[in-house]
Amino acid sequence: MTYDRIGHLLLTPVDREAPARVRRLLQLGIGDRAVPAFDTFADRLAEVTGAPYSMVNFIDENRQFFAGLHTPTGTHTGTDLGAVAAAGKIGRFLARDHGYCPYVVARRKALVLEDVCDYPRFAGNPVVDEIGIRSYMGAPLIDRTGLVLGTICVVDTEPRRWGRAGLETIKAMAAELVEQIHRAESDPF
């Protein structure tokens, strides 16, 4: 089957909460730097789901930032994800129009894509061709103020059956991380 990427490429969803999110992330002291506790969380998320890559992702108006990152090789570079993907390394930054986390933020609900190529809306995303992402599962981090701070997600370069158990796991782990963030308000990371 031939797929016309350009004809079906969907624009990144509008994110009206971005300015408020940026203010809240600054208030919390997160979202613009790597946090060892978030790396540890991403490591555990990968272990629990069996995914080779996992992230704690905060999104501003222009980009995504992986404050927590797990990769199979343990690399955590500070460069752009697309640029380092060819070298086998995954970085902490990703353009806002790449990947699926902006959809999770806009929807305010978890998203499970067992094979992104099965969904024309998502198959044309640059991460498919540039990085080789074939499977995605993510959940929003909804703060007690009602803002979506970002997401946690796992990805794989192979199609993967996450199932209902995977969905419940990622949602539970997102709630767990939000609680950890709330506790850190009085004792910052």
Rank of each mutant, 00 (worst) to 15 (best):
V56L: 09
Y119R: 12
A67Y: 09
G166H: 10
L69D: 01
F66D: 00
Y119A: 05
N62Q: 12
V35I: 13
T157F: 07
Q27Y: 12
P52L: 06
Y53M: 04
A67I: 10
L25Y: 04
Q27I: 05
F189P: 12
V154P: 04
F122T: 00
K171E: 15
R164E: 14
K171I: 08
H70Y: 08
G91K: 03
R161C: 03
G124W: 11
F189A: 14
Y3N: 06
L26S: 10
E158N: 13
R5V: 15
N125P: 08
Q27S: 12
T73L: 11
T2R: 14
T2D: 13
D15Q: 15
A46H: 15
P102T: 08
R63E: 09
E114G: 01
G78Y: 05
E114F: 05
G166N: 07
A46P: 15
L147Y: 04
L167I: 02
G146N: 06
T40V: 09
D156W: 07
A123G: 06
E47G: 10
I181P: 01
E47A: 15
V154E: 01
L149K: 04
P120V: 01
W162Y: 12
A20E: 14
L45S: 09
L113T: 13
A46C: 15
E61K: 12
F58G: 00
R108Y: 09
G31W: 03
R92L: 11
L94E: 11
V104C: 04
I59Y: 06
Y103S: 04
L141N: 00
G166W: 07
G29K: 14
M1Q: 04
I90R: 13
